[in-house]
Amino acid sequence: MYNITKYYEAHSVREAIELLQANPKARLIAGGSDLLIKMHQGKIEAAELISIHNLPEISGISLEPDGTIIIGAGTTFSQIANHPVIKEHIPVLAEAVETIGGPQVRNVGTIGGNICNGSTSSDTAPTLFASNAGLRIQGASGTRVIEITDFYQGPGRVDLQHDEVLTAVLLSTDNYRGFAGHYIKYSMRKAMDIATLGCAVVCKITVQAVIEDFRLAFGVAAPTPVRCRKTETMVKGRTFSEELLLEVGKSAVAEVNPRTSWRASREFRLHLVEELSKRAFKQAFIRAGGKLQ
């Protein structure tokens, strides 16, 4: 039995916000696959919960007339992985969510929970960082949209007021159209594991194999997910080559700041940053239609 002291069910985002306002200690629960674990571990005690589980208003995926892909915050990983819009337009996100836990966890865990828990090991964050995802956040005073790269403030800390709800993840055409990507999750097991390092690359190339756009992002390489902006700038406009791969690896290492924990040492993570950025780049390049010499 979970130590839940109060439980409310929100039937709309509005209601969730009102409930949050009325209950200063309450938290949202979506899939529960993060929160309930923390309660079991005693990291959260005596919780007041406002359930947005299966709230239709924030679940599902749509393609807007302007090409923007809107993923409801309450959409589960399985729904994302299997959705035709995702598979067609941003398959790297499907690839990323497929690495999460196991089927059971993917059937309940939501993208919103994965972002809002503020964890650097989130398996969606690197891809969403690389794709400049926007987050639509609704609060008592209205709705705001911010970039995911501005959302994370520190380990477990995100830019979300007590009475705000993340309602959707937005992917605009200029961040996915023409792009190809690859997400590599490095973990100790092939399923049911937390990333030792997550690496996402998305890129766009010209017919001459010039890298027109390039983004590189990591999970667990710093206290929050990170983008490697300098490396990106360095790559843009260059032609793909093995030398460029080496440069990318080296450059990425200079832009991250992993820590040593019992899960892995800083040195090992740095090594992986270098290695995986090369591998992810190469694969993304191939997927973008690039040919290796």
């Binding site: 629960i29 696959s33 059971q104 059937n107």
Partner: peptide, 22 residues
């Protein structure tokens, strides 16, 4: 805590860990 799958049941046809499902 959703790690072992021994408690798996189907909810609307989808397998989930019933231990971490309210």
């Amino acid at each position: 805590v959703g790690e072992c799958g021994a408690c798996t049941v189907l909810i609307n046809g989808e397998p989930i860990d019933s231990c971490i499902y309210l």
